[in-house]
Design a binder for these strands. Structure first.
Length: 483
RNA sequence: GCCGGGUUCGUCUAGUGGCUAGGACGCAUGGUUCUCAUCCAUGUAACAUGGGUUCGAUUCCCAUACCCGGUACCA
């Protein structure tokens, strides 16, 4: 191995971590780890207006919950920005303003960039005129040849002097050779009038200074890549490898957005999706192994992932398959693990032993952790129900009462309260009395659960214990007789 | 408008110059001593269109269509 591989995830702190952002972070993480490289987290907070307080910390917390730990980046903490140090830090761009200004200055001195004193009003007017003439709106280069070597007044901006007739060609790891003509690229603003760098400058300077070897980011950055390459060339820096990931889409193929469902990873965690299910699902949005393996832990993904085999077309985020992964991973957990993960969805005054029993019975019926809150109710208290559902659809009231009484009688004698024993006892009640399963199992099950659909009667009775189970059967018989 | 990217079952995708184009999710049907769930089995459904190149194209090339992204002192 020649150069040490280094990737980065560089979100803007404008909100919660987006599912698409998670996928980008994941692919960066996987690529770095499988090459024994380093994964860097950098916070791109160069737009003062859009910054959301606390968003950076929330982003970091979510990444950690998902298991995507960074080798380099801000330390997690209450106010991460203040504690932001590190070998290539700081990692909050807002703390690196001097660095960007110095670099921009260097470009100006070298004649690669220039001060522009055009007012926003003039630019707006220019744009409107161009649009009226149906021309592509772009900067007219008014200040380009003035060669101002320092700020002329307070309102200025530094622009990149984009070469006039050049072709920028690069090789995208996912998409192959891509070409852009510089004639179509505007003289990009590098330093804004508030002294902050634009994304383009900050991104290139930091990627170089932090030693990033592979830039893996969303497809929306593809048209910006020639601008970045021009900057690398202006500085005389070597280029990193670029890879542009396909976008994640809504069902209607538009870019995945809030309007059509949840897009924040936190939303899914709150609904009871397991991190490993989310990671596994998201990993498969844009990449797939050649064999038909689908279940991957994070370490397995590190081994199997192949950036070169990443899909080029956008992928629709389909909740159905996520549900399937989630249900699968829930079933894989032991009751103890499950209990730890779904505590927040359970009442807190219930004894742990009982909860573990409930989880054992309900585990295979759970699609997400939050559903346990509803499921647990019938074990704690018999839900109100219509006595009518006690009667199996192929049976009648008399047979149902008989079935329940037989069950009650035979279960009363059962001292070893195990599932197998109970189901054997019920089966015996059926066999000895010339009844059908529906005559006994159904009403007993409804009697102890109060529900039309539920786990098997012996499973519920096992959780409830003998006393409560028999009480519920007795109640059911009384209700039926009263009717 | 201009620039760039993309197009295999409904969805995520595998794959190849010649195959019955494979898997998973979903859906449907059946089985698993009552319902539900699980599990199992079976079924369902795709190479955008038109030209080339070729003995032969889903695969290579070129158009067209459609979709997406970009076109900011936002990232």
């Amino acid at each position: 191995m020649n150069q040490k591989i280094k990737t980065r995830f560089a979100p803007s702190p404008t909100g919660y971590l987006h599912i698409g952002g998670l996928r980008t972070a994941l692919y960066n993480y996987l690529y770095a780890k499988q090459n024994k490289g380093r994964f860097v987290l950098r916070i791109e907070d160069t737009d003062q207006k859009r910054e959301v307080k606390g968003a950076a910390e929330a982003l970091m917390a979510t990444l950690q919950k998902m298991g995507l730990n960074w080798d380099e980046g801000p330390k997690q903490g209450f106010i991460a920005k203040i504690a932001d140090k590190g070998q290539n830090g700081p990692y909050f761009q807002s703390k690196r303003l001097k660095i960007y200004q110095n670099h921009a200055q260097k470009l100006v001195l070298a004649g690669q960039a220039y001060y522009c004193t055009c007012s926003p009003e003039r630019l707006e007017k220019l744009k409107q005129e161009q649009e009226a003439r149906k021309e592509a709106p772009r900067y007219d280069g008014c200040c380009r040849e003035k060669n101002l070597k320092s700020k002329a007044n307070e309102n200025f901006v530094i622009r990149l002097k984009v070469p006039e007739n050049k072709e920028v060609v690069f090789n995208d790891l996912i998409r192959g050779e891509i070409k852009f003509k510089t004639a179509e690229i505007d003289d990009q603003v590098l330093i804004k009038s508030d002294g902050f760098p634009t994304y383009h400058l900050a991104n290139v300077v930091d990627d170089h200074l932090m030693g990033i070897t592979h830039v893996i980011r969303g497809e929306e950055w593809l048209p910006s890549t020639p601008k970045h390459i021009l900057l690398y060339e202006a500085f005389g820096w070597p280029l990193p490898q670029f890879s542009h990931l396909p976008l994640l889409l809504n069902a209607d193929k538009s870019k995945l957005s809030k309007r059509q469902g949840d897009v924040a990873v936190e939303d899914y965690l709150a609904k009871g999706y397991l991190p490993q299910a989310i990671i596994n699902y998201v990993a498969l949005l844009g990449w797939h192994p050649s064999d038909n393996k689908e279940i991957f832990s994070l370490p397995e993904l590190v081994k199997a992932f192949d950036l070169n085999k990443t899909q080029k077309a956008g992928a629709i985020f389909d909740i159905e398959k996520l549900n399937w992964f989630n249900a699968y991973y829930i079933k894989q957990l032991s009751e103890k693990e499950l209990l730890n993960k779904c505590r927040e969805f359970l009442p807190n005054n219930v004894e742990q032993g009982l909860l573990l029993k409930i989880l054992k019975v309900e585990k295979e019926r759970l699609n997400n952790l939050s559903e346990i809150g509803e499921k647990v109710k019938m074990f704690l208290e018999l839900p109100a129900y219509n006595p009518k559902i006690l009667i199996f659809k192929k049976s009648n009231k008399e047979t149902t009462v008989k079935g329940l009484e037989l069950a009650l009688e035979i279960l009363q004698k059962e001292n070893d309260w195990q599932k197998e024993k109970m189901s054997q006892a019920l089966a015996k009640a059926v066999g000895d009395n010339n009844l059908t399963n529906g005559d006994v199992f159904w009403p007993v099950r409804v009697a102890v659960s109060g529900l039309e659909k539920s786990p098997a009667p012996e499973e519920i009775m096992w959780v409830l214990g003998k006393e409560k189970s028999l009480k519920r059967i007795q109640n059911a018989i009384e209700k039926l007789k009263l009717k």
